[in-house]
Amino acid sequence: MKVNRREFIQITGATAAGFAVTGLGFDLSPVKAHAQMLKTKYAKETTTICPYCAVGCGAIVHTSKKGDGRVINIEGDPDHVINRGSLCSKGAALTQLTENSDRITDPMYRAPYSSEWKKVSWDWALTEISKRVKASRDANFESKNAKGQVVNRTTAIASVGSAALDNEECWIYQSLMRALGLVYIEHQARI
């Protein structure tokens, strides 16, 4: 993917020289200075679409090529024909959504009657969930309804979500839920 920048404004003699040209011989860094060089200069650039409302604004994600490879900046994509580089306050804060110390980064489990979360492994969590799904489904599977019509379903498991999934994720998600026989499949579009 190639990002073609059209946002550059014309500056006579604009170079990265910047502050150095004053030549006054003392530190002219602004308060809370970033490097004179743009912090995004050597970052990896990828385009994304904002995850909030459904206008579908484009944004550019600057990911550090060094260290832990995290996001250092996200701003509007000037080549996106809808938003042309602009964003609202939520979109402008996307960096803080991603680089957020409140994010949960390991699966967690809350046992019956427990008052706390416990960190668990993915393998354990997914295996246990599979067993729960099978137990609830098999104990409550309806081959036929009260009228004797074939229904092959379970109404003992419900699933809600999600408009936050990608299209492809939505498709495999619903195919799995329907293959399990769920009919209580709902999400944000209903509310």
């Binding site: 500056i11 602004p30 308060v31 004179q36 701003e75 602009s86």
Partner: peptide, 30 residues
């Protein structure tokens, strides 16, 4: 004024402008 006596305010995103970009507040405006 900050806690240590330093003063702060808008810097016109001078680093962006020097590098040919618009100030962040301008670019973001729909």
């Amino acid at each position: 004024k900050g806690a240590d006596g330093t003063l702060a305010k808008c810097d016109m995103c001078n680093d962006r402008v020097e590098n040919g970009l618009q100030p962040a507040c301008v670019k973001v405006c729909p």
